[in-house]
Amino acid sequence: MDGRTAGEVQGTAPFRGRHRSTALRKALVTAFVATGAFFLTLALTEDATRTWPWTASLVSGGVALIVQYLRDFEQRFETVDRRLAEICAAAELFSRVDGSVLRSEEVTRLFLGYTKVREQGGDIVQAFAERELRRLARTLEGLGGGSMDASGENHEWLIDLTDCVKMTLDATSTSVDREFWSSGPGQRYLTAQEKAVKRRGVAIRRLFVVREPDEVTPELTALCEDHRRHGIEARIAVRSLMESHTRVDDFIVFDGELCFETMPDLQSAPDGTRLRAEPEHVDDRVSQFTELWAAAEFVPEP
């Protein structure tokens, strides 16, 4: 034994195979070019001593060999240049991460976790991991651009944002999401809001919007009371009793910086979710909520 490990032997074997294959290819190409040049020069000249055919053969073969080596050198140089560019891009990326609010160790964990999945996971695990990574990339790109859309109701976004909010949460609730409050995600959302109020002192206001006074049912009043038990201020806004009867959408403003909006379909059912962080849009939502809240009715204790 020469002291090398099995991994070293396995790692060098493919390299040696590729090296032999490349050398054989160069030799065959050189021989083919040299032979072709010999017979072509022999056919085109009347040199009885065959000096010119041999000279042309040697020169052509040498040129062919040199060209092949130059081509290989160029390919290796391009590979090295590309890898250097990738290394520089990675270094710049991590330097930005180190200087950002996002902790660099979390990004490191992401890359290490993905690498581990690629090395040890099965096909379905790798496919799922890649799908999740693409989803995360789209989310971050969207937030960086100020807007992010998702199909259907994204309850995970809603609860995660509630866990992140620090100061205020102002929300409207229309008939689009009225049944949401009795669902499992709705109860989880209420629990997350109660924790935000009691543990972090977040001020939460919810405005239930209806079209006509007869829509202020005992069920809606009971829903407002349930919110108050969770530490949430609740009011009911009747659009027909207001000076302005403009349409009111379902939206939530987190800390006056980010809007979570529900987009209804033609049947007024939740069809999509949108995050908006553009300052002008957020300011418009804040102003709209402030006006609606001032015009709404306080629901008395039952």
Rank of each mutant, 00 (worst) to 15 (best):
A90V: 09
Q288R: 13
I236C: 02
D250P: 02
K195C: 03
R76K: 09
D81R: 13
S182K: 08
E105A: 11
K116H: 11
R76E: 14
D123G: 02
F298A: 14
G144S: 07
T221Q: 13
T41N: 04
A150R: 12
T217K: 06
V29A: 12
L42N: 11
E46R: 14
P53L: 09
D72Y: 10
V176F: 02
W157P: 01
S151D: 15
A64Y: 04
F38I: 08
A23E: 12
A237L: 15
T273G: 06
R239Y: 02
V216A: 02
L169H: 04
C224E: 01
L136C: 06
E46M: 08
A89F: 04
M148Q: 08
V33N: 04
V59P: 02
L42M: 07
V253P: 00
P14F: 10
G36W: 03
A56K: 01
R71L: 15
E225V: 05
A222Y: 02
P218E: 11
K198H: 10
S175I: 06
Q75C: 04
F38W: 15
L161D: 00
T49L: 14
I87K: 12
D214Q: 10
L169K: 06
A137D: 08
E233G: 06
A23M: 12
L258K: 03
T108A: 13
P53S: 09
D284E: 14
Q68K: 01
S268E: 13
L70R: 15
P53N: 08
P270H: 04
P213I: 05
V107T: 08
G201R: 07
E215H: 01
A13Q: 11
T108L: 11
V63K: 03
E78H: 07
S240Q: 11
P300V: 08
S183V: 05
A89P: 00
F251T: 01
S240L: 05
A203Y: 00
A34G: 14
L140H: 03
L190R: 10
V80E: 11
F260A: 04
D177V: 13
T246K: 06
L102D: 12
F73S: 14
R18D: 12
R25I: 05
E280C: 03
R96W: 05
S104D: 05
E301I: 09
D249S: 14
Q288E: 14
E215M: 05
W293S: 07
R239Q: 13
A91D: 15
W181A: 05
K116S: 13
I159K: 05
D163W: 01
G142C: 05
D47L: 07
L24A: 15
S60L: 08
V286W: 00
W157R: 00
R285C: 14
R206I: 11
Y69V: 13
R235A: 13
A196T: 03
D47H: 02
D226G: 06
S100E: 06
E46Y: 04
V210K: 03
E141W: 01
A269N: 09
R247H: 13
A34C: 08
Q120Y: 07
E257N: 04
A222W: 00
L143M: 15
S287A: 14
R83Y: 06
R188A: 15
V80R: 12
R274C: 11
A34V: 06
E212F: 07
L266D: 10
E132Q: 11
H230Q: 10
G36I: 07
F94R: 12
